[in-house]
Amino acid sequence: MSKRSIKNAPFIHGGVGASAIMRDVIIALIPALIWSVYIFGFRALTITVLSVASTVLTELIFCKATKKESTVSDLSAVVTGLILAFCLPVTAPLWMPILGGAFAIGVVKMPFGGLGKNFLNPALAGKAFLLLSFPKVFSGYASPATARGLSPFAISVKAKLVPSLLGAVEDGVDNNTLVDMFYGNMAGCIGEVSKLCIILGLLYLLIRRVISWQIPVAYLSVFFILAFSFPRGMDEAMNFAIASLLCGSVAFASVFVATDPVTSPMTSVGKIIYGVLCGGLTLLFRYFGSAEEGAVYAILVANTLVFYIDKLTCPKKSGGVKIGN
């Protein structure tokens, strides 16, 4: 990684670099990875490894092709690869993480100038690309028992698919299912099933001050309140809201994707606005969108608005928010 020798004041640096932040995100993702291998078997690991390899290699090749210094060592490509893999079902054919990773880095991240310059979250854009191109793969998920029987190395697998729980929550779920959803004993995308592992990651990121509380808290609370206020199906509102929170990718996305510093606002107020926007849009996409899951498109739409949120909330001289000696 490139280093800068400090020549001007301050002649001191806190020592936390971009790679240290990315390393913390990777550490925060490890519980979910371990759980996914435990619950879905080694095919989950194969998909994750291929996805990371694809993102890292694409970045390397892009840097070589454009004769730039390699930026792989900032570890952001590894994070993108991990998040992309975690958004895929374990039944996905093995070329899918490779294609998605190449798209995320080669189309969404690097052409805009690399880390910090992309306006969409690369992993999420990769997932949206796969979702639009191959909707069949995302039409159902293998139950944990079926998934463990899948070959880790077969390019594509045939398995009995069950519809995701998103449909089921409208018919009502019992308490045992809710507990299973919390621990992650359910069918779903590789890294998104275990809310417990996601909470562990969230706590680690908060303690290490990698992310701030505003986005996940605003996102999830708005999502929860809206789901509680406008429940669907015959189940009681509270039960429905909790089940909505525990199924799909909303929990994972709010902690690991919406908090991506590059594609989220910079100020605290902006982060709250962004979180509220994501929460509201997620529910709207879930209720009225053609795809089952709303978080992917909600965050991508919110990404495009970050520029304006920043413009609105950056303290200005005339605005007089808090500038002053």
Binding site: S2, P261, S268, N325
Partner: peptide, 23 residues
């Protein structure tokens, strides 16, 4: 002293640290 150099990742840490509320 050396500092790792990359592009701005828009993390907003500088905004939180600024004692006079600049960006």
């Amino acid at each position: 002293v050396k500092a790792e150099r990359s592009g701005c990742v828009r993390c907003g840490k500088c905004i939180d640290a600024c004692p006079v509320g600049l960006t």
